[in-house]
Write a protein that binds this DNA or RNA. Structure first.
Lengths: 335, 335
DNA sequence: CATGGTTACTTAATCGATTTCGAAAAGGCA
DNA sequence: TGCCTTTTCGAAATCGATTAAGTAACCATG
């Protein structure tokens, strides 16, 4: 491997001079610097990120915490899209991405220790149990963090606008003439709270009274749970005319149940999903859904984190809410 | 941050002694070592991976090269499953995962340079254009690599058994009574070559003559292409009785086209996918498909790579082929 | 010509951990 | 007692890069 020492010998200058020349310091003669850079290029020199990290105390490495709880972490399109955009934005600023987890090798470490061990300059946290003490420890540590879809007091976060999303969805369905709207929600997370709250609020604003039986507890990313909830809704004396699902993927379970019972979409029952994953747009009829802007979320999260890392003085915790976009498909019928 | 120096001062020993005690060297008195370890624990000592990497020339970091070409990299369930299992297996051996890409920050680097810059001990390569000179440069470099679903001469690789998979699928369909089997294949990659070859070979073994029109060029992960190919197949005078799709996701396009033309599955047309993604198993009727064992593939790839890294002497390049499993759904009708 | 100010470098310490070599102390043996 | 061996630990170099502080050469100015 070509090191700074090799270059210094070839150029008959000290290692310090080479370092400065390569980093564009002003106290090196322009010609000397040009020559050094030339030689460095010829020799195929690459800076050693490890050595640099050790000396500078900055690794230019960002940790990401994506726990594949119930295997819905990376395999969930929403999160893989976030990850991809975090990665792209981070790379644009010169940072690499490392996964953070517990128990690396024989070392028994928690998230904080792992991030510290790897000298991560910051960590992006998504798709985890935010009540996990290990997560809380990390957030409250000296390591800068940005959370996705969850807010810790006085910490930066990037949020999908679940309130606006649900409101828009409900209003859209209402405008199509629906008054009996059912909602199958996901696990009791803060996201579910937001969506459920917005659902109720919007319905109230629209003057709708939603019977309790129209609110069903389902599970994110779980077609089976949605199928069962759909069955219960179909068994009601006073059926809803439209069902909102926890997300696009879990809607598949509802779709199956509806088909099984001979209830056509959207002829006999209107439906809408949430997320706007690829699948929703290739199904026929195209699923009406609310597309979360995962790309912008990941990008913003990375930008925020880099800000905290590079300008800690000027930084103040910010919670950014990223709007999504209603994708009007063909599954909500006008009545 | 607690360093080895802090511990050495507390214990009134040299840094060398602390290092040795912590690493279990034999030339340290048992009691001394125990005491040092005790103090280290009390002080919350964590080794500094960066310093260790610099000194030892080993980063305990594995790079992964997953290019999201046409956004089908991480968003493709097959690859996200591979990534997840690579990560788990790597972590079991004490390695972390870093993404490798080009152009990190302002540095203009190729894959090799990036991996070198980060001191990756090895790289796992999947989901890329294997004819890309930058990929070839990386593979032929001093950095150990393991490729997935592609073989470079004298290099280690882990392969999904596309030959056996396709053969099993064709035989299954044949056993159900089908003789007119169409195949929509993906882009002309080595995977497609394998599947296409196996398709033809198996058909020949079964005494089937497949008309050229039954072989359609589609695109992986692209429902639209599959939809168009399906339309062409349906327009044939002598329609096939069964269509094999490039993969489960792209099958959706075929599903839509069939439904649009009033062709029921599997009543009027049998179909099968490939991959065995979650979706295939929640659709109704359940899709008959061949599940690739992405978990084992990722695990094996990581194991192989760690072998090369840790025992370079004993290592010889190996190509491991991982069998999948036929998932008999309800989309292939017995005739 | 002495003083002061630039310019253009070099020296040497430093980041945290590992390891080679050496040395002191303790024990064994004749 | 003297010599050798073993045990236990420390000094110092090292990995590659950065940087504060110092130095030499040069020019300008009163």
């Amino acid at each position: 491997m070509v090191t700074i020492t090799d270059i210094s010998q070839r150029c008959n200058v000290s290692r310090a001079t080479v370092s400065k020349a390569l980093n564009g310091h002003s106290d090196i003669n322009a010609e000397t610097a040009a020559h050094i850079r030339q030689v460095a290029k010829e020799m195929g020199y690459l800076p050693n990120a490890t050595a640099r990290a050790l000396k500078l105390g900055r690794s230019h490495n960002i940790g990401v915490l994506f726990v594949d709880k119930t295997s819905s972490g990376l395999s969930h399109e929403y999160f893989s899209r976030i990850l991809e955009s975090v990665k792209q934005e981070a790379e644009r600023s010169g940072y690499d991405i490392t996964f953070i987890s517990r128990d690396i090798g024989t070392l028994h470490m928690d998230y904080y220790e792992h991030a510290k061990y790897r000298n991560c300059d910051g960590v992006i946290i998504a798709s985890v149990d935010f009540t996990d003490p290990a997560v809380i420890k990390l957030v409250n540590s000296d390591i800068p963090t940005v959370t996705l879809d969850y807010v810790f007091d006085s910490h930066s976060a990037v949020l999908s606008d679940n309130v606006a999303g649900m409101a828009e969805l409900v209003r859209y369905v209402y405008d199509k003439g629906h008054r009996k709207i059912a909602f199958i929600h996901g696990e009791p997370t803060s996201v579910t709270q937001k969506r459920l709250g917005s659902f109720h609020k919007t319905c109230a604003e629209l003057g709708l009274t939603i019977p309790e039986a129209y609110i069903e507890a389902g599970t994110f990313h779980d077609p089976k749970a949605s199928g069962l909830a759909t069955r219960r809704l179909l068994a009601l004396k006073d059926r809803p005319t439209c069902i909102l699902y926890p997300d696009d993927f879990s809607f598949i379970g509802g779709m199956n149940e509806l088909e099984k019972q001979g209830v056509s979409i959207p002829g006999d029952m209107s439906v809408a999903g949430y997320d706007g994953i690829l699948l929703s747009q290739v199904l026929r009829p195209r699923l009406t859904t609310y597309r979360q802007d995962a790309e912008t979320m990941g990008q913003e999260a990375a930008k925020q984190l880099v800000e905290i890392i590079e300008r800690p003085k000027e930084w103040i915790p910010r919670q950014i809410t990223i709007p999504g976009r209603l994708l009007a498909g063909d599954t909500v019928r006008a009545i």
